[in-house]
Amino acid sequence: MVEPAVDSRSSFTKLWPDARTALEDIVSDGMLLAIGGFGLCGIPEALILALRDTGARNLTIASNNAGVDDWGIGLLLQTRQVRKMISSYVGENSEFERQYLSGELEVEFCPQGTLAERMRAGGAGIPGFYTRTGVGTLVAEGKEHKQFNGVTYILERAIRADLALVKAWKADLHGNLVYRRTARNFNPNAATCGKITVAEAEIVVEPGEIDPDEIHTPGIFVHRLVHNPNPEKRIEKKTTREV
């Protein structure tokens, strides 16, 4: 039996110099992307800016929301790079509304849990699944209906993205990711469903510095890593209580 040399992967790193170089050779027109985040919480800020700067057009983006007018995915709407959004909720964005109502932008409304599961399934090699969510509503139109134990379900299809962009709090050079608080949201699910997945993290450490039991997304799902130590982390609705 051959023992692998202890230090055989010591130079193995997925870290790229910056978001621009991490994306420029893998982005193309007409791509399907999965992007993590809920509202502006846990969005891959640097990667979205770099995606905008590639100039890629006719993009389809699966993401729970579409950012706000001047931040997050809203930046890609300003530059008319998005052809279609697959989202559960798209309020708080007037440019989105304008493009949607004028027919420039196509929207596939997808229930939030169905969207998360479509990403999870896509990453797990499951092409579709049956769910009760949406039965009897507009969401069910044109979809296969099937009964299990007397209950009706509809068939929803997985999302396998050409490229997934996610935001982590901490990463190691092997692409193992840890998220923080509710900034986790769609990021672990999006990370699994990308044919190529690029993550940005606030903190990047050497392999071994994160306990294996504490890793949320194993590095096998992450192909490229970008260090963004000071994200803006814009807050949509700051609410506080009196002390």
Binding site: F38, G39, L40, C41, G42, N64, Q112, G113, L115, A116, E117, M119, R120, W169, Y179, R180, R181, T182, A183, R184, N185, F186, N187, P188, N189, H216, K233, R234, I235, E236, K237, K238, T239, T240
Partner: peptide, 24 residues
């Protein structure tokens, strides 16, 4: 904390014994 919001996108806190998890 910008990383800690509710489903209405408002900043919140969590109680002792809370857990965080993915959308799936």
């Amino acid at each position: 904390d910008a990383d800690l919001i509710n489903a209405g996108k408002e900043t919140v806190t969590f109680i002792a014994g809370a857990s965080t998890f993915s959308s799936a």
